[in-house]
Amino acid sequence: MTVFHRNEKKEPLPDSLKGGVVAIGNFDGVHRGHQSVLNRALEIAESRGLPALVLSFEPHPRTVFRPDQPVFRLSPAPMKARLLEALGFKAVIEYPFDLDFSGRSADEFIQSVLKDWLHVSHVVTGFDFHFGKGREGGPAFLMAAGEANGFGVSLVDAFRDENAAVISSSRIRQLLADGDVAEVAGLLGYRYTVEGEVIKGAQLGRTLGYPTANMALPPESALKPGIYAVRLRRPDGMLHDGVASFGFRPTVTENGEALLETFVFDFTGDLYGEVCSVSFFGFLREEMKFSGLEPLVEQMKTDEAEARALLAGVKPLGELDAKIAF
């Protein structure tokens, strides 16, 4: 899939992608609610023989308006692109969002982005999508603009889960803060997954018989510290089950920075420098401080056994989960 970063030079879009069906939104997490919008765009594109594209915004608008409170991203741009590709989109356009862009009129967005640059034939978005200075562009504005400029518009209602509750990114963030990755998977439609470069840690795990692949998650990550059953994917696509600790390692350090440390089952080798992904299948226990290394190792053996048992019976939640975590 092609990822475009449009800048002020307004580089032309390839002719093969012009006149497509465009899903517009931030889509942080690409959860089941987002997928109701995205799948509608894919269906329309397929029925008309047109390319399906996603128009998103980087960085997250909330981070631009409140830089001192960066939002906990469920799917940073590279992960989001990977999810959108797995769904079937041909390209994602990561439009730069800044204060200047937020101050432009809704009509300018329609004319300069949707009409003159993308040459859209159809737009699909959520029923509550707003755009332009002061959020002046809403559903009625978009529908009228489509009629005036020759493109269709489909607005998709809020998607609700089996308990009739609306699925939202903020709801999923709170569940991750609670460590409930099983509930999160049900709302996402796939196992929650993070991605990062494997870095060197203190290498204490090697001496304990539990070498780990370490990743530094973004500081705004609100994932609950604890022990998780996980699956790690290497850049070559190889999958490995494992058990991961996310947190601050209170037994061996004080005031340390949060790290995700994954012990990969039945693997010997060097992962340093590789950009790997880790999918979370289950929360095993909270992070604890032990009286020494011996009780820590005994608990790690128990964690490993529990993770192996949990992962032995897992099955894909659906097609997207199968592509991401299986």
Rank of each mutant, 00 (worst) to 15 (best):
A158V: 14
T125G: 02
W117E: 14
E136R: 10
A158K: 14
V124E: 03
E147Q: 13
F141I: 01
S168G: 14
R135F: 07
A140M: 01
S121I: 04
H122Q: 09
H130Y: 07
I167Y: 06
S154A: 10
A144F: 03
V123G: 05
E162M: 10
G152S: 04
G132F: 01
A144G: 02
D116A: 13
I167F: 10
S121M: 09
G146M: 09
V123W: 01
F159Q: 07
G137K: 07
V113H: 07
A144D: 13
R160T: 15
V123F: 03
G132S: 06
A148Q: 13
S168L: 12
L118K: 05
A144K: 13
R171Y: 14
E136M: 08
L118P: 09
W117C: 05
F159M: 08
L114S: 03
G152L: 06
V156K: 06
N149Y: 08
V156G: 04
R173E: 08
F131M: 06
V113R: 11
L114V: 09
V123S: 02
D116C: 05
F159Y: 15
G132I: 06
G137Y: 00
L142F: 06
L142R: 04
D161T: 09
D116M: 04
H119E: 15
G138A: 03
I167A: 09
T125Y: 02
D161W: 10
T125Q: 01
R160Y: 13
D128L: 10
H130G: 02
G132Q: 04
A144E: 15
L114D: 00
A145L: 07
H122N: 02
S169T: 14
S168W: 12
E147V: 13
G134R: 08
I172F: 06
R173N: 08
G152R: 09
G132A: 04
I167Q: 03
V120D: 04
E147P: 05
R135Y: 05
V156A: 08
T125M: 10
M143S: 04
A158F: 15
E162G: 04
A165I: 12
M143I: 10
A158Q: 13
P139V: 02
